[in-house]
Design a protein around this nucleic acid. Structure first.
Length: 188
DNA sequence: CCCATTGGGATTTTAT
DNA sequence: AATAAAATCCCAATGG
């Protein structure tokens, strides 16, 4: 309807990303902190142990988090989130993209073949994935698909991700997908 | 009718 | 310290 608006928000998003990315690049090259080597690998290791190959069909999808470590986890993930993922702060759609790229997460979320940027959650394990997201953010209360999908719906406003008619199915917009791919490639 | 999914208002958290 | 944006919580509506 409004291609002008779309183009405008495209530009905004792209510029933001470029700025942040270059900033981050400089910081990493110049100043070295303790957690410089924290990268995709590190946080993958963080959640992968909680993810046995066999799919546990838990009633409430409760991962592994004793309440005692919640506080520690929160602070740690805050720090890590700032440095990890080759970006500054991990946003929900970045996280989802990483999940989609990871074959071991195929039982939770996967690309819909012969479509660009369309992905679908597994009806069985969507809550598990959501819980992972919650852990990543260091939430005290476990994240659920319901809440996570709400965040996805918020993305519809800014156009990063849109809902498609099918159940549990969403779609990255073109530029979001492009950005994500670019980041991923440059990261490896 | 029940359950799962979706939509959206209100509130809280986080970054700048 | 204040503001804006993103994320979260909660409940209502819809659909199979």
């Amino acid at each position: 309807m409004n291609s002008y608006q779309e183009a405008q928000s495209d530009l905004e998003v792209i510029l933001e990303f470029l700025e942040e990315y270059h900033k981050q690049n400089r910081e990493n090259n110049g100043v070295q902190e303790d957690a410089t080597s924290v990268d995709n690998d590190t946080w993958e290791q963080c959640w992968r142990p909680c993810e046995p190959p066999s799919i546990p069909v838990g009633p409430e999808a409760v991962p592994c988090e004793p309440s005692a470590t919640s506080v520690t986890t929160r602070q740690l993930s805050k720090q890590q989130a700032s440095v990890a993922g080759s970006g500054r702060k991990l946003r929900l759609f970045h996280f989802l993209f990483e999940m989609l790229e990871d074959p071991t997460m195929a039982h939770c979320v996967s690309w819909v073949p012969s479509s660009s940027g369309v992905f679908r959650f597994s009806a069985r394990n969507k809550d598990q994935l959501a819980a992972l997201w919650g852990q990543r953010k260091g939430n005290k209360r476990p994240m659920t698909y319901q809440k996570m999908s709400r965040a996805l719906r918020n993305y519809a406003r800014s156009g990063e991700i849109v809902k498609v008619k099918k159940k549990l199915t969403y779609q990255f917009s073109e530029h979001t997908l492009m950005l994500l791919h670019k980041r991923h490639r440059e990261d490896l």
